[in-house]
């Protein structure tokens, strides 16, 4: 039991992202309300963002900014080591992914608005019933 707990704790970030991913996917597939589906989609995308952000993190690492005084005075004695800094690349990538996520959310919500204007409902079964009657 203890072994299993430590196994889970060691990879806590990955477990979290997998759980969030599944929550989002579940909502997108199973939920009846279109806005709930959209919320599921956002959770799904956020899970990936968390995955990337946690992948760049290092225990004991610091922000990847080289201080000026260090570079000028200290750098000659103590060289700058990449291992001391967290990896900024996945974080920068996720700035782009967040923008993509916001754009997707915008398009999805505007489509949902059009659907509501058309059918007067956002529940999928009610919309399908109306479609069948037309």
């Amino acid at each position: 039991m203890e072994q299993m707990l430590s196994f889970i704790a060691a990879k806590a970030n990955y477990w979290t992202y997998v759980i969030l991913l599944m929550v989002g996917l579940y909502a997108m597939i199973v939920k009846n309300n279109l806005v709930k589906k959209i919320v599921g989609m956002v959770i799904f995308q956020t899970a990936i963002i968390l995955f990337y952000v946690s992948m760049g993190y290092k225990q004991g690492g610091t922000i990847p900014i080289v201080m000026h005084d260090e570079a000028h005075h200290g750098a000659t004695s103590a060289a700058i080591k990449a291992i001391d800094y967290i990896n900024p690349l996945p974080h920068v990538l996720m700035l782009t992914a967040i923008v993509v996520g916001v754009a997707t959310l915008g398009v999805a919500l505007s489509l949902a608005m059009k659907i509501y204007q058309e059918y007067g409902s956002l529940e999928e079964d009610e919309i399908n019933e109306k479609l069948r009657n037309i």
């Binding site: 997108m28 279109l34 589906k37 989609m41 799904f44 995308q45 997707t104 398009v107 999805a108 489509l111 949902a112 059009k114 659907i115 058309e118 919309i127």
Partner: peptide, 12 residues
């Protein structure tokens, strides 16, 4: 819009 929203979910 309804067909597109389905497309958007799967595309995403």
């Amino acid at each position: 819009p309804l067909a597109t929203l389905n497309y958007l979910f799967l595309g995403t």
